[in-house]
C-alpha cells in the first residue's frame, strides 16, 4: 500500500535542499494569506503549478482531487449563501458571495498544492534531516519520521482487525451516528494495544544501537545549499517582500 505522496524523480525541484523547499512552501502560504484578490491568487496558483510541473509531481493532484474538489465546492456553496452582497443570482446566492467563495477556494487549494509539491518532492529522511538542520531537536525529528513510517503499518493492522471483526458479524454501516461511533471501539482497542505493546522492545532496540549516546550526531544523508537553493530562496524572498509592499501600499 503506497500511502505517501513522495515521487522518486530526478528533477531540480527534487534536488533542492529540503530547507529551501520549506522556505518556498511558507513563502507561498504567506503570499496566499496576504491577498483576497482572485486575479492575484490565480497568478500565484499558476506559479505554484509551474513549480510543481518543473518537479514532475503534478500527477499527485489526482490523489488529492477529491479534497481539492470538496474544498472548492464547499467554499463556493457556503460563501455564495452567507457571503452577502447586492447582486442577487438565485435565492440567497449573490455574485459577490460567489466570487468571494471562489477566491477562498483558490487560496486554500494553492496552499494545499504547495504542501503537496513539497511532500511529493522530498523524502521523509530529507524532511527529518531538514528539520534537524533548522534546529528542531533530533529526538523530536526522530519521533516525527518514525511516526510517518509507522502509519502504513498501523493502517494495515487496523484493516486486518476491521476485516476480522466484520467476519465476526460487526456491522459498521448501519445505525445512527452515535451507534456507528460506538462500533469503532472494538476496532480502536486492538489496534491501540497491538501498537503500544511494542514500546518496551522498540526502546530497548534503540538504546542497544546507541540512541541518545551522543548529542553530536552524524548522518549518512548530507544536506548542503548550492547555487540553485540560493536562487530559489532569493526569488521567494523578493516575491514575499513585493507582496507585502503591494498589500500595504495598494490594499488589495
Amino acid at each position: 500500500m503506497d500511502m505517501f505522496l513522495y515521487m522518486d524523480k530526478d528533477t531540480f525541484v527534487h534536488n533542492l535542499d529540503p530547507r529551501t523547499k520549506i522556505f518556498v512552501m511558507f513563502g507561498t502560504f504567506t503570499i496566499a494569506l496576504l491577498f483576497n484578490s482572485l486575479p492575484v491568487l490565480l497568478a500565484l496558483a499558476a506559479l505554484v503549478l509551474f513549480y510543481g510541473y518543473s518537479g514532475k509531481v503534478l500527477a499527485n493532484l489526482k490523489r488529492i482531487r477529491v479534497i481539492l474538489f470538496m474544498i472548492a465546492l464547499m467554499s463556493i456553496l457556503i460563501w455564495s449563501i452567507v457571503g452577502g452582497g447586492e447582486t442577487k443570482l438565485l435565492g440567497p446566492i449573490t455574485l459577490e458571495g460567489f466570487i468571494y467563495g471562489l477566491t477562498v477556494a483558490v487560496k486554500f487549494n494553492v496552499m494545499i498544492i504547495a504542501g503537496m509539491i513539497f511532500l511529493s518532492s522530498t523524502t521523509i529522511e530529507g524532511i527529518s534531516l531538514g528539520l534537524v538542520k533548522l534546529k528542531i531537536p533530533y529526538r523530536g525529528a526522530f519521533a516525527f519520521s518514525t511516526a510517518i513510517r509507522l502509519v502504513p503499518m498501523i493502517v494495515g493492522t487496523s484493516y486486518t482487525i476491521t476485516q476480522a471483526q466484520r467476519s465476526r458479524g460487526l456491522d459498521l454501516d448501519s445505525g445512527s451516528i452515535f451507534e456507528k461511533i460506538k462500533k469503532y471501539v472494538p476496532l480502536i482497542i486492538p489496534t491501540f494495544v497491538s501498537v503500544i505493546r511494542g514500546t518496551n522492545v522498540f526502546s530497548m532496540a534503540l538504546e542497544s544501537k546507541g540512541f541518545g549516546y551522543d548529542s553530536e550526531r552524524t548522518n549518512y544523508l548530507q544536506l548542503s545549499y548550492d547555487k540553485r537553493d540560493y536562487i530559489f530562496m532569493i526569488i521567494t524572498f523578493i516575491l514575499v517582500a513585493v507582496s507585502i509592499y503591494v498589500k500595504l501600499t495598494f490594499d488589495f
Partner: peptide
Amino acid sequence: STKMVVLVALCAGLYAALLIPFKSIVLIPG
C-alpha cells in the same frame, strides 16, 4: 527518556493512521 520518545512516535502514528481514512469526509474545507 527513550521510552517516552518511542511513545510519542507510536501515539503520533496511531492518531495519524486513524485520522487519514476520514480525510475525504470534509466538514470545513481544507
